[in-house]
Amino acid sequence: MTYLLDANVFIQAKNLHYGLDFCPAFWNWLIEKNAAGQVFSIDKVADEIAAGADELTDWIRQHNGKLFRKTKPHIVDQFGKVSAWVTGQGYEPAAISTFLQVADFYLIAHALAEAHVVITHEVPANSTRRIKIPNVCTGLGLHFMTPYEMLRREQARFVLGGV
């Protein structure tokens, strides 16, 4: 199983759960799983995060080459499928316009093209004003889960003191 991480996975990890300064094991786990071909994100997610100017931005720049995949032609082939689904669901025009311009659109296309499981903190919502990743995943038959579900499934262990 391969996982594709949304920007909020990195941002919430840094801000709420696995700070770069006190839980390097989480960040090392991401790098190790990336090297093993299991965990990725995309260049558009890296771009969203890089708009900030903090330690996460520095970490993203340091690991941009391997962890964050570029959008290749076979990914672009999925854009039509994603946009057709989104425009056919009754979302407000502003929500559609926003979705088609942000990393979420590209993330879903990558997941479709390469059969990745999408990892996000977002939850499904019945709203016409904002398009949520889980709604799109469900509509397009993609699997999604939270970062915690991924960590449990992969049996990640962040053990203090080598116990």
Rank of each mutant, 00 (worst) to 15 (best):
T2R: 15
Y3F: 15
Y3M: 05
L4C: 06
L5G: 01
L5M: 09
A7S: 15
V9Q: 01
F10E: 03
I11F: 01
K14E: 12
N15P: 00
N15Y: 03
L16Y: 11
Y18V: 01
L20T: 01
D21K: 14
F22Y: 06
P24V: 05
P24R: 03
F26T: 00
F26D: 02
N28K: 09
W29H: 09
E32C: 05
N34G: 03
N34C: 12
A35P: 00
A35R: 11
A35D: 07
G37P: 02
Q38N: 14
Q38D: 13
V39R: 11
S41T: 13
I42G: 13
D43Y: 15
V45T: 12
V45I: 14
V45W: 10
A46P: 10
D47V: 12
G52E: 05
A53Y: 11
A53H: 12
A53V: 07
D54I: 05
L56C: 04
T57E: 06
T57Y: 02
D58M: 09
R61E: 10
R61P: 02
N64Q: 12
G65F: 04
K66I: 08
L67N: 01
L67V: 13
L67I: 11
F68R: 01
K70T: 08
K70W: 03
T71D: 04
T71G: 02
K72V: 14
K72H: 10
P73H: 07
H74C: 05
I75H: 14
V76P: 04
V76I: 15
D77H: 14
F79L: 13
F79C: 12
V82A: 09
A84T: 12
A84N: 13
Q89Y: 10
G90W: 09
E92Y: 07
E92I: 10
E92A: 15
P93K: 13
P93I: 12
P93Q: 14
P93G: 06
S97I: 07
F99T: 07
A103W: 11
D104Y: 08
F105G: 09
F105E: 11
F105V: 11
H110K: 00
H110C: 02
H110Y: 02
H110F: 01
A111S: 01
A111L: 01
L112T: 01
A115M: 06
V118Q: 08
H121D: 01
H121Y: 09
V123A: 07
P124C: 07
A125Q: 10
N126V: 09
N126R: 14
S127H: 02
S127N: 09
T128W: 08
R129W: 08
R129S: 13
R130D: 08
R130Q: 14
K132M: 06
N135W: 12
V136R: 09
C137F: 05
C137D: 06
L140Q: 06
L142N: 03
H143K: 13
H143N: 13
F144L: 03
M145E: 12
P147R: 08
P147N: 04
P147L: 09
L151A: 10
R153G: 04
R153N: 06
E154T: 03
Q155N: 12
R157S: 07
R157E: 07
R157I: 05
G161Q: 12
